[in-house]
Design a protein around this nucleic acid. Structure first.
Lengths: 230, 230
DNA sequence: AACAAATTCTGGTTAGACCAGATTGCTGCA
DNA sequence: TGCAGCAATCTGGTCTAACCAGAATTTGTT
């Protein structure tokens, strides 16, 4: 075990220990020994964890895990670290993604530049090629949606949405193993693109709504019911 | 200079150096000497910065600043560090906040629990007291809006919005120095609350739109025009 | 001027040490 | 027995001093 790869391991270990110990985590020295790395390494990981508000380091006392804050910082971290989210978190992420993308489509219709259109068209062309070759378009689907967000010209908006995409990567891969789904998605993308070029905000938004309904239902139907009606 | 307080200082230094040096930042050893701290301290700060994708550390080569990614991670960091945002970032944050809150109002109308209503009412009562005492309600305004987001029962949503509020705290304080604005805001809050209790999603959302228009225009009218039409 | 070799520089990582509060546990008095 | 008070221990915070190996730069040679 070495390098920054220990971060998720340490995080998981911290969470477990804290759960079994009322929020209190092992000491830095224990962690270093447990993972066979230097204390410096551990401290770097802990600094990141603390910056994400996953833990709290109290001088001369110990490390405490914020068990209650299942918030965005924590999620962003787990997404990066590749630790699977719980059902509830997935529901929440799906809902938030919907909210963002529908609005993004609306804004993009008004603000998209020529370069944005070119980038979108490029994505569509590459999708077509992959479909023709019988391959999945999961990565390109992601790219298409992100390009639309990018076309809002709001970099903050883009960053938020980028984070969400990390969450769904695995599921997306499975989703696009079905050739029919690939074609259907691609067709809908093309429609959205055309509405976008016409700068018809209402239509673009509406198309995005129905497009997401299909994709998202795949996500959620695999889960236990958890979120309140939506 | 000591402790985690060096993080913003290092970040600012990195940004400046990188700008004057084509993305390349000083070495860890130089930074340590410059700030009179140990290399370990610098490395902890760099680890956080890297986790936020503000910089990139290339082994045996150097530290590179992601000048293009003025994204969410960077913003979250700057918000925490207390470094003022640039106009563009403020515009983006305002827009994103609008998007979130309007949708939040809509969802909250459907999902709010009895506890949510109680919490909101409590905020309104305390607001009334402060106004009667001739004080500003800036912190309570924030609380009101966050409670509405909380009423969506989506913790991820709440976390995102909480981040945004950090950005506007200073401006909000100035805004609520005017007694008239305090009263106006409070009245609008009460209307929103009543629509919420009636579980009228459309009305709640509409009221939130007009409420935000007033508050937000104060923010943006102080800035240079920058964002595309909205 | 072009290429090769030597040297310097850089991030990555470790080990060991010291500080000063927070904690813990023991001791002795009541 | 119970509790106050003190001492040993533990903990995060910080620093110094190295070593490694590859990247980057300089030097030397042809």
């Amino acid at each position: 075990m070495q390098g920054q790869e220990i971060l998720p391991a340490i995080a998981a270990h911290l969470l477990d220990s804290a759960r079994a110990n009322g929020g209190k985590a092992p000491s830095e020295r224990d962690l270093a020994e447990h993972f066979s790395v230097s204390r410096g390494q551990v401290r770097e990981a802990l600094a990141i964890l603390e910056s994400m508000q996953v833990i709290e380091r109290r001088a001369k006392s110990g490390i405490y895990v914020n068990t209650d804050k299942s918030g965005f910082e924590a999620m962003a971290f787990f997404a990066r670290a590749g630790i699977p989210l719980e059902n509830r978190q997935i529901y929440e992420a799906v809902e938030v993604r919907k909210i963002h993308e529908i609005k993004a489509a609306e804004l993009a219709a008004v603000r998209a530049t020529e370069e944005d259109f070119e980038r979108l068209q490029d994505v569509l062309e590459r999708s077509e090629q992959r479909i023709a070759a019988g391959e999945g378009i999961d990565a390109l689907d992601q790219e298409f949606h992100l390009q639309i967000v990018r076309a809002t010209q709001n970099t903050l908006f883009l960053s938020i949405c980028t984070s969400f995409y990390e969450l769904g990567r695995q599921r997306l891969e499975v989703y696009f193993r079905d050739p029919d789904r690939n074609r259907k998605s691609h067709e809908e993308h093309k429609q959205i693109y055309e509405a976008l070029v016409k700068r018809d905000a209402a239509l673009t938004s509406a198309l995005m709504v129905s497009h997401l309904r299909g994709v998202m239902s795949y996500w959620t139907e695999l889960l236990e019911p958890h979120a309140p009606g939506s």
